[in-house]
Design a protein around this nucleic acid. Sequence first.
DNA 1: ATTATATACAACCACATGGTTGTGTTTAAC
DNA 2: GTTAAACACAACCATGTGGTTGTATATAAT
Lengths: 117, 117
Amino acid sequence: MVVFNERDSDDLDQLFHALANRTRRDIVARVLGGEVAPISVLADRYEMSFAAVQKHVAVLEDAGLVTKRRSGRKRIVHGNPERLGEARQLLAELEELWHARFSQIDAVLDDPTTNEE
Amino acid sequence: MVVFNERDSDDLDQLFHALANRTRRDIVARVLGGEVAPISVLADRYEMSFAAVQKHVAVLEDAGLVTKRRSGRKRIVHGNPERLGEARQLLAELEELWHARFSQIDAVLDDPTTNEE
DNA sequence: ATTATATACAACCACATGGTTGTGTTTAAC
DNA sequence: GTTAAACACAACCATGTGGTTGTATATAAT
């Protein structure tokens, strides 16, 4: 119901910032899609250095969108769909504010309890 | 169906970047919620200069999340809910990739036509 | 044992971001 | 007709971002 609270506004900044980059969205799509993904394998598909991809994964990890699990010398990247859900939830709430504009007018006319100045 | 295409990846970068800031999310919430909002009125509620808020509105406008309409010397800021829908849609598609991981296994077992290597 | 692979991490760079102040212009209020 | 309000816009600044290269370390392959 409450759209914004101080508490997790930094979280949301991080979350949306992580999604505001094509390479990172692509990585998220791949790991969510089920690709077994050590960083090295991910890195092969992008025209940038291993270190650059490593940084992108770190941004995603800080945002909570992926986690890394060690497997020998590899770090397997796993997706975190719940975190995406949080972002989608917030957008849905924002859209809901818009819809509420109209339904509110009806409500005020119908419901006498909304009539406290 | 197709999650990413080259064409609008810059658009999405802009869109998510615009949402990756508390002040901007707050502005979006207010204008979508129906607040009549010249920039000056918006600016009053934040502890930053008018010019700073002006810039935030500009970022939102470039991202397509709001539009400005002139009214005398004021610029009324209006929300653009469809654009939010686009972002939500993309997140939904990403989540769908995750769900598809499991339903795909079932599908392969059930449907012989998926059996072309 | 040596070599190659996969990663971590630091230093560096050009450019973007989020803020500021200052100046100019149009419109409203007196 | 002055003054004040609402905005546009530029210059500036500290910090962040997205990339690079280089060095170090742990594990796998030979």
